[in-house]
Computed example of a mutant assay.
Amino acid sequence: MLKNISIVVEMEESGKVELYITYQVYCASWKPCYDIRASSAEEEEDSQNGSSVQLCYYGLVEQNTGDDWKDCDIVLSTCSASLGGSPPPLSTLSASLHSSRPTRRHHASSAARRKAPLSIPSEEDMGFGSFDYNDIVDAAAYHRWHNGQHCRSSEENSVSTQALENTVSTCFSIPRAVTILSNAVEHKLLIVKSDLSCAFSHETVPSRSTSAYLSALITNTSQLPLLPGAVAVYVNNCFVTKTHLRLVSPGEEFRCNMGVDPSVKVEYKTPTRSYEQVGFMSKSTLMTHEQLISVRSAKVRQSVKITVKEQIPKSHDDKIKVSIVSPEIKSSSSSKNSASPPDARLNKDHNLEWCVVLAPGQHRLLPVRYTIEHPASESLSYKLN
């Protein structure tokens, strides 16, 4: 359905007039998505240069407004009306003495109190009547007019962004004119390509899986906030996995999992357990658990940093004593005074954790040995928390 507007302009003298019209429509939206691309060649760079991944920042735009947008300058805004409203009121918390003597309660009044709402929501609490669209609409229109010519002449992988004044949002200007038809079909528009610095590492939990999983700790070295959205991860131009990105501000770090690295081999040997009776007055059973974990790097030129995790039982009973014989676990105080960090430690989940650096082609064995002593008249049971 077409609608017309009439504008009457009164002028004292004849001249040329340019009118910029801003209006609001429904059934138009966008959401961010990303491609993160890494390659083994980047991992092989010199440590002084550092490693990096390429992040492609996209906006998925769709509209079903009834009008086709042909050769338009698109500005994507992070402003959301759902963030409007006021904070909930905070009443005074009073403390008083409560008598321990039982008192009679009337069922009718108790039922009425149960049915009564805690508070009556206002329009501001529900997000109505507190957001003014004119600010963001006028700012976006001015931003489009002011930067329109610059966006057309910029390169395809460049971006023009600006945190608009008087708003709590960021605007992304698409650096070329695009056509988006009114058919509710998503259009993938490139906002920017950025090379972000990162540090690659591996992790394995051999008791659950003998695969070594590659991940990258990425720093958002760009000037743009990374909004929550879907991420497609590629390694050496091959699709690996899909994940989801949380809100990442400029300068903030986030971790991206990149799947299994077949060039790091992990072997979990079959564990052995032995039992013996100890004690004179009160008999106890001493169980000795021995385990061997093998890690090997098949890479030719680059070192591998890998974290290996193994479960260690945690005692919640004074009658059960768990002692780690191997590897040597250093306390946090001794590790601070030491020139080198400890090779193995107990993490917050009471799991044994090694941080191992493997040279190209290096093979290393990680022995695990611990004992559990408990009364001979009782048996042990294990439970995962």
Rank of each mutant, 00 (worst) to 15 (best):
M1E: 12
K3T: 15
I5D: 14
I7N: 05
V9M: 07
K16G: 04
L19G: 04
Y20E: 06
Y26M: 13
K31D: 03
C33Q: 08
D35Y: 08
S39H: 02
E42K: 06
S47Y: 09
Q48F: 09
N49E: 09
G50I: 01
S52V: 00
L55R: 01
L55I: 09
C56M: 08
Y57L: 03
G59V: 07
G66D: 05
C72W: 07
G84P: 02
S86M: 10
L93S: 13
A95Q: 13
A95G: 02
S96T: 15
H98Y: 11
P102F: 11
T103F: 11
T103G: 10
R104N: 06
R105M: 06
A108P: 01
R113K: 13
S119L: 07
P121Y: 04
P121V: 00
S122W: 03
E124D: 13
F131G: 03
D132N: 14
D132F: 07
A140C: 15
N147L: 11
N147Q: 11
Q149F: 11
C151N: 07
S153D: 14
T161L: 01
T167S: 09
T170P: 00
I174K: 04
T179F: 04
L181T: 11
V185L: 10
L189R: 03
L196R: 02
S197R: 12
C198N: 02
C198M: 15
C198G: 02
F200Y: 12
H202I: 02
R208T: 12
S209C: 10
T210C: 12
S215T: 08
T221C: 13
A232N: 15
N236Q: 02
C238P: 00
T241G: 01
K242L: 04
K242Q: 13
T243V: 03
L245H: 03
L247G: 08
G251W: 06
E252I: 00
R255S: 14
V260G: 01
E267N: 08
K269P: 00
T270I: 10
R273C: 12
R273V: 12
E276G: 06
S282G: 01
S284K: 08
R296V: 08
K299G: 00
K299P: 00
I306Y: 01
K309F: 09
I324E: 08
S326Q: 15
S326E: 15
S326I: 08
E328P: 02
K330L: 14
S334E: 15
S338H: 02
P342A: 15
D343C: 09
N347I: 04
H350A: 08
E353A: 10
E353M: 11
W354Y: 06
C355I: 09
V357N: 05
Q362D: 07
Y370C: 04
Y370P: 03
I372A: 08
E373M: 15
S379G: 14
L380V: 05
L380P: 01
S381N: 06
L384I: 07
N385Q: 13
N385R: 09
